[in-house]
Design a protein around this nucleic acid. Structure first.
Length: 599
RNA sequence: CGGGGCGUAGCACAGCCUGGUAGUGCGCUCGGUUUGGGACCGAGAGGUCGGAGGUUCGAAUCCUCUCGCCCCGACCA
């Protein structure tokens, strides 16, 4: 490929609306352009990368028995109504009508489509297991698209689904996918960590996320350096020291606390309590939908004064203990903090004076860390008053206990109890779930076992964001000059740069090297532009091709050219007539290093 | 959805406060010189100033509405 005729619109300056490094470099290096918020056009360089990443994924999927499908991006509403997710997905789903007024949506994911095929055509345990996947466009009307390709409204996803006859089969399928995923990230040059994760709206039991550590990420991962425990903070637990509550048995007592409104106020108040001896009372509303109806179910969440509520945990707890009280057909679609007026209506007091003692008309979910606590202080639901000597079990009518709090760096590891947890920002590049029977139940996907009994298919689902891998590779591999592509995902493996096209000898040498590399099936880009050396070198560095062969007048007089390694930023002079061979060796070595994975 | 910021040439921006018919750098075209880290000289092309309405003799500039984009938060398989 000749650069002079290839479309690579590089930019000298950072575009003003790019913030994270991968976004800046994708734009500057001429890989992408924005069409609308969270919607990007992939230019030829990006498309080459995306195809390479897709092929790596395809190879690893096929290696574990995957069969490639291709489903539509546009789905009839009925399919999603069956699974119940037509309402669950809410405004995140792009919806449209056809000419007859029928409801459709753009696919956010494809559990429903795959399950539909499975229920119609899988009849017997003898057909199992099945491993099905596709590489397809997904549409999600994100509330806030951001960071270039990291959170978009349209993107390519490899989604895979496994169908097994029993839990043991699912465990096996899940493990195979987990290994395939590990191979994929390794081959793409991403250092990753596998963490325990929340299943969210996908439903199901176990789930693992594949994360890379980067500040451009949107998740927090808690990990133990000692035993390797790692979990998304939406899921992570920790061990924390018990608080000495002293003797029990004293009766709860109301006492005046003028102008005390916050945990902090009460800590500083004469006769108050330290934060770890306070109960924080939060009012939330579980919003549920059924058809076109919507319903609000308020509830209380209790936490230790110095603990922070975790939204994901709260939402899960609410759907289990509040949502299921709503009755058949109601699905929780959101959990939100109650508004000031709602709080006053429900509690007869404002936020800042709230407590759960004596509250019977609202469900009360208490964080596990409050178990067994006594002699605590909490709001009295009366302005300027609090209650002391409150024993949780004795004085508060609890609906349930649940893990609601967000772990904090420095707390104890929940697994080995020796390590100290670290918390760091991370980007999710893949997520695998053990779905179980969530979709086979709701959509009626059943097969016959050997004993002739009908059982629901046991499903797993597995997703990778293709462009996110590209962006992640750039987040992890870049320097001041630009991208440093891992060779497996680089648009080209090597660039040949004659530094003065007017020098006939330089040009002839470069032509020759380019021809030979092309014949050797090397993915080579020939920078035959009549540009100054600085422009060519800067562009090659910016786009980040793993290797460069630089051909200049002076060195060529000694029969040498420069071989440059973008990753290590080292160069060596090699004989011009050996450059092709050396390039071939380096490329092979580099490919092998990344592609060496567990079979 | 709440808070903040920004829309002027392909890109980055100035001009707006204090109204007078649009400018700088890079890029682009042509000619010449130059050629190992984003060259130089000369001559050019390129703009519905996001959109609509209003005020005014006159609006990029003032007012109202609206659309879009970015950031923080809410939200997020």
């Amino acid at each position: 490929m000749r650069w002079s005729n290839y479309f690579i619109p590089t930019l000298r300056e950072d575009p003003s609306d790019a913030e994270v490094v991968s976004h800046k470099l994708l734009l500057r290096a001429g890989l992408i352009r924005q069409l609308a918020a969270g919607i990007y056009s992939y230019l030829p360089l990006a498309q080459r990368s995306v195809i390479k990443i897709s092929n790596i994924i395809r190879e690893e999927m096929n290696a574990v028995g995957g069969q490639e499908f291709f489903f539509p991006a546009i789905h009839p509403a009925e399919l999603w109504q069956e699974s119940g997710r037509w309402s669950v997905m809410g405004p995140n789903m792009f919806r449209l009508k056809d000419r007859k007024g029928g409801d459709y949506c753009l696919g956010m994911t494809h559990e429903e489509c795959f399950t539909d095929i499975a229920r119609n055509h899988l009849r017997s345990y003898k057909q199992l297991p099945q491993v099905w996947y596709q590489i397809q466009t997904k549409f999600r009307d994100e509330a806030r698209p951001k960071s270039g390709l990291l959170r978009t409204r349209q993107f390519t996803m490899k989604d895979a689904y496994t169908f097994d006859i029993d839990q043991a089969g699912l465990d096996k399928s899940f493990e195979a996918q987990r290994q395939a995923y590990s191979n994929i990230y390794k081959r793409c040059g991403l250092d990753f960590v596998i963490v325990d994760a929340d299943s969210g709206a996908m439903g199901g039991s176990a789930s693992n996320e594949f994360m890379i550590y980067t500040n451009a990420g949107e998740d927090m991962v808690a990990s133990c350096p000692k035993c390797g425990y790692a979990a998304n903070t939406e899921k992570a637990r920790s061990s924390i020291p018990a608080v000495d509550d002293g003797d029990g048995g004293q009766a709860a007592e109301k006492f005046p606390t003028p102008s005390v409104r916050t945990i902090e106020d009460l800590v500083n108040f004469e006769g108050g309590a330290t934060a770890d001896k306070q109960i924080k009372t939060l009012v939330y509303v579980s919003v549920a939908e059924k058809g076109n109806e919507s319903k609000n179910a308020p509830f209380l969440a209790l936490l230790r004064g110095d603990h922070q509520v975790n939204d994901a945990k709260l939402s899960n707890a609410a759907s289990r203990f509040v949502g299921n009280k709503l009755g058949d057909g109601w699905t929780q679609t959101a959990v939100r903090p109650a508004h000031a007026e709602e709080i006053f209506d429900l509690m007869g007091a404002h936020a800042g004076s709230l407590g759960a003692v004596g509250v019977t008309k609202l469900p009360v979910i208490a964080d596990e860390a409050l178990r067994g606590r006594k002699n605590m202080t909490t709001g009295a639901n009366v302005e300027d008053h609090h209650l002391r000597n409150v024993s949780i079990e004795r004085d508060i009518e609890l609906t349930t206990w649940s893990d609601l709090r967000t772990v904090v760096e420095g707390e104890g590891c929940p697994k080995c109890s020796e390590g100290i947890l670290r918390v760091a920002k991370a980007l999710e590049v893949g997520h695998i779930f053990k779905l179980g029977t969530k979709y086979s139940d709701s959509m009626g996907a059943r097969v016959l076992k050997s004993d002739g009994k009908e059982v629901p298919l046991i499903m797993g689902c597995y997703g990778i964001g293709v462009e996110r891998i590209l962006a992640a590779a750039i987040e992890l591999h870049n320097d001041e000059a630009g991208i440093q592509f891992p060779i497996t995902v680089s648009p080209f493996q090597i660039v040949v740069s004659p530094l003065n096209m007017k020098d006939a000898e330089v040009k002839a040498t470069a032509d020759g090297i380019y021809d030979e590399l092309t014949k050797a099936a090397v993915e080579v880009l020939y920078d035959d532009r009549d540009e100054r050396a600085g422009v060519k070198l800067n562009d090659a560095d910016l786009v980040g091709f793993p290797f460069q062969i630089r051909i200049g007048t002076k060195k060529l007089k000694e029969g040498k050219v420069e071989f440059y390694d973008r990753a290590t930023k080292t160069s060596e002079d090699v004989a011009a007539d050996q450059a092709v061979e050396i390039a071939g060796q380096r490329i092979q070595k580099s490919l092998q290093a990344l592609n060496a994975v567990t079979a």
